[in-house]
Computed example of a mutant assay.
Amino acid sequence: MKIKILHKTPKGFLIGRGIRNVKINSVVTYKNKKIGKVIDIFGPITNPYIKIRPINKDIEVPEIVYIKNDKSKYKNTKKRKK
């Protein structure tokens, strides 16, 4: 999922705009590098604002970042009995 970064707050957080399927604690990446985590979602439901805590407060972030999809195909499977 694409997230457009709007600005950086004085405390070092990043504010972006995204889509409604974003979840808190999702990993934010750029060029396959982890740059932070989603810590808050606020604003309108259809196009919410997303607050991101970067790994490094001095990080230079591009205009577009991506949220890694945490869905695993093995997440809800039951363990086999032997």
Score class of each variant (00 low, 15 high):
50 I>N: 03
17 R>C: 08
49 Y>S: 14
63 E>K: 14
42 F>K: 10
66 Y>M: 12
39 I>D: 04
61 V>Q: 04
63 E>G: 06
18 G>M: 01
56 N>L: 03
4 K>P: 09
16 G>H: 06
71 K>M: 15
40 D>M: 07
1 M>C: 07
62 P>H: 04
47 N>Q: 14
67 I>C: 09
31 K>V: 06
18 G>H: 00
28 V>T: 00
81 K>R: 10
3 I>T: 08
46 T>A: 14
65 V>R: 03
38 V>R: 00
5 I>T: 07
66 Y>R: 11
70 D>F: 12
80 R>I: 08
59 I>R: 02
33 K>D: 07
29 T>M: 14
10 P>R: 06
9 T>F: 05
61 V>M: 05
4 K>G: 11
44 P>S: 14
74 Y>A: 07
66 Y>L: 12
56 N>R: 07
60 E>G: 10
43 G>I: 01
14 L>Q: 06
3 I>C: 07
2 K>G: 11
57 K>Y: 08
77 T>W: 13
32 N>M: 08
18 G>T: 01
67 I>A: 09
9 T>K: 04
62 P>I: 01
10 P>W: 03
1 M>N: 09
13 F>E: 10
24 I>V: 08
27 V>G: 05
10 P>F: 05
29 T>I: 15
55 I>W: 03
8 K>H: 04
47 N>T: 15
20 R>F: 11
75 K>N: 08
60 E>H: 14
13 F>Q: 10
1 M>L: 11
21 N>R: 09
49 Y>Q: 11
57 K>D: 09
58 D>T: 07
62 P>F: 02
9 T>I: 06
24 I>W: 01
8 K>M: 03
16 G>K: 03
57 K>A: 07
2 K>P: 10
19 I>S: 13
18 G>Q: 01
62 P>G: 08
71 K>L: 15
45 I>H: 12
17 R>E: 14
78 K>E: 00
14 L>K: 05
25 N>C: 04
6 L>V: 13
8 K>E: 03
34 K>T: 15
41 I>E: 03
53 R>G: 08
25 N>A: 09
78 K>R: 08
16 G>S: 08
21 N>V: 06
75 K>Y: 09
48 P>L: 01
76 N>R: 09
43 G>Y: 01
52 I>F: 05
19 I>W: 12
53 R>C: 13
45 I>M: 12
77 T>C: 13
68 K>M: 13
72 S>C: 11
66 Y>I: 11
42 F>N: 06
71 K>E: 15
31 K>Q: 13
58 D>M: 06
21 N>F: 11
63 E>W: 05
2 K>V: 09
17 R>W: 05
63 E>S: 14
3 I>Q: 05
16 G>T: 06
75 K>I: 05
23 K>T: 12
4 K>V: 15
20 R>D: 11
23 K>V: 11
14 L>N: 04
39 I>T: 10
51 K>D: 06
34 K>N: 11
78 K>G: 00
